[in-house]
């Protein structure tokens, strides 16, 4: 099972994501914004990063760019959690190095299905 870094400034979203993933047997570390996630990523290796886009301090797109610059995160899947209208955010995310995205709102089943897509 995978070690997953879940980044969102909304505590309820983090709770939901973490609860779902833990229920599926993954190990989850939470971060409340991009900067906190980046600090964690510099000390620890993760198999997957799930990140919200709009966050204080450091947004998800900058986080993706910064993570890709770390040697240990060159190929680690990074999924952005975006809202349905955010087509340009998806493109921006991709340009910054994100692997893909999950469209909000999603339910736990959809989240797990997407994770399965990435992790196999």
């Amino acid at each position: 099972m995978a070690t997953i870094l879940a980044v969102d400034d909304s505590a309820s979203m983090r709770q939901m994501v973490a609860f779902t993933l833990k229920g599926a047997g993954h190990t989850v570390t939470e971060a409340a914004d991009g900067q906190a996630a980046l600090d964690l990523a510099k000390r620890q290796k993760f198999d997957l990063v799930l990140s919200d886009v709009n966050m204080p301090r450091m947004d998800g797109i900058t986080l993706a760019r910064e993570l890709r610059a770390l040697p240990s995160f060159k190929f680690v899947p990074i999924l952005m959690l975006t809202t349905e209208g955010g087509m340009n955010k998806k493109q921006e995310g991709k340009a910054a190095g994100a692997t893909g995205w999950i469209v909000k709102p999603f339910n736990p089943e959809q989240l797990l299905a997407t994770i399965k897509r990435v992790m196999g």
Partner: peptide
């Protein structure tokens, strides 16, 4: 797998 979303609502309301 079914997860009850109720449990997150309190947090959602508080943070909102």
């Amino acid at each position: 797998m079914s997860i009850d979303m109720e449990q997150f609502k309190t947090t959602f309301i508080e943070e909102s």
